[in-house]
């Protein structure tokens, strides 16, 4: 589905954000990208849809080599990549519906979109999506009238209206409370299964990543240092990704019973307490 070869990004300031990162994401796989702040997670997903131009390396989406497209071709391919943001990145003064419909901009001309004349089947599709994410009562509300969790749901609906093959998700829960974070992550995961979407999710919260991702990728200082199943992420690996810290207090419960950790109600620390209130 998505394959990345030797991706490197040097910013103009000389900072090397990514160094020779290579990986493949098969169709339908949800991969969590973890790593300390400044490890290059955001740069990585922005290099995929070229919001940030990679310095070298290749990115393939299916058969298409994204890294050699011209602007017009790139715009057409961006439609296949839905993006979800930390601060939701909605247009505050537009309504929920206008925000969702903006996911269709890549398919329509300027004047049609300027006068908000969208085809009826697209409007219907937007209704279905808004219902799916639970916002059918807020369609005509302005985006800035919504709470954080609701706003992120609008962001998700906008990304899905593109009919993407892959979701690029940048810190979807960093501005949300723990409960809403889990709901949003669960929603993204469910939608990926329903629609057979691949996803790369940048996330700070290791527990959420282990809970909802099929695969964990660890970046440190722009280099790939871990790539494996959520269960394979132990204290040693966390030290490799994030640096020295007493990881065992929070990882212990996973090590004891990796199979049942999702439903277990072991509350010797805050993270396992959270897991206890799961799904």
């Amino acid at each position: 589905m998505l394959s990345v070869h030797q991706l490197t990004k040097c910013y103009a300031t000389g900072d090397k954000a990514l160094t020779n990162v290579s990986l493949e994401i098969p169709a339908g796989q949800v991969a969590a990208l973890i790593g300390p702040s400044g490890a290059g997670k955001s740069t990585f997903i922005r290099c995929i849809n070229r919001l940030v131009e990679p310095t070298s390396g290749k990115v393939f989406l299916g058969e298409t080599e994204l890294t050699k497209l011209n602007q017009r071709q790139l715009r057409r391919e961006r439609r296949r990549m839905g993006m979800i943001f930390q601060e939701y990145a909605l247009i505050d003064r537009l309504t929920v519906m206008e925000n969702v419909l903006s996911g269709y901009l890549g398919y329509t001309g300027f004047w049609r979109s300027y006068f908000r004349r969208y085809p009826q089947d697209v409007v219907k599709k937007a209704f279905v999506l808004l219902e799916r994410v639970g916002l059918e009562k807020f369609i005509d509300k302005r985006a800035d009238a919504l709470s954080g969790g609701q706003r992120q749901r609008v962001g998700i609906a906008r990304a899905l209206l593109q009919s993407p093959d892959i979701l690029l998700v940048d810190e979807p829960t960093a501005s949300l409370d723990p409960k809403t974070s889990r709901q949003i992550m669960r929603l993204i995961k469910e939608l990926c299964i329903e629609r057979k979407l691949a996803a790369i999710i940048n996330i700070h919260d290791v527990q959420l990543a282990q809970l909802f991702a099929d695969r964990i990728i660890g970046l440190r200082a722009g280099e790939l240092v871990f790539d494996g199943l959520p269960d394979g992420l132990d204290a040693d690996m966390l030290t490799r990704i994030y640096g020295e810290e007493d990881w065992n207090r929070s990882v212990q419960s996973d090590e004891e019973s990796p199979e049942s950790s999702k439903t277990k109600s072991n509350s010797h620390d805050i993270h396992s307490a959270l897991k206890g209130t799961n799904v």
Binding site: N49, L51, R78, S102, G103, Y104, L105, G106, F110, Q162
Partner: peptide
């Protein structure tokens, strides 16, 4: 960030301006 988000949908320059 909204500019980034609209650009990421595959919108043209003019559409990014207007949205």
């Amino acid at each position: 960030t909204p500019v980034e988000a609209i650009t990421a949908t595959g919108a043209s320059r003019m559409q990014v301006m207007s949205y």
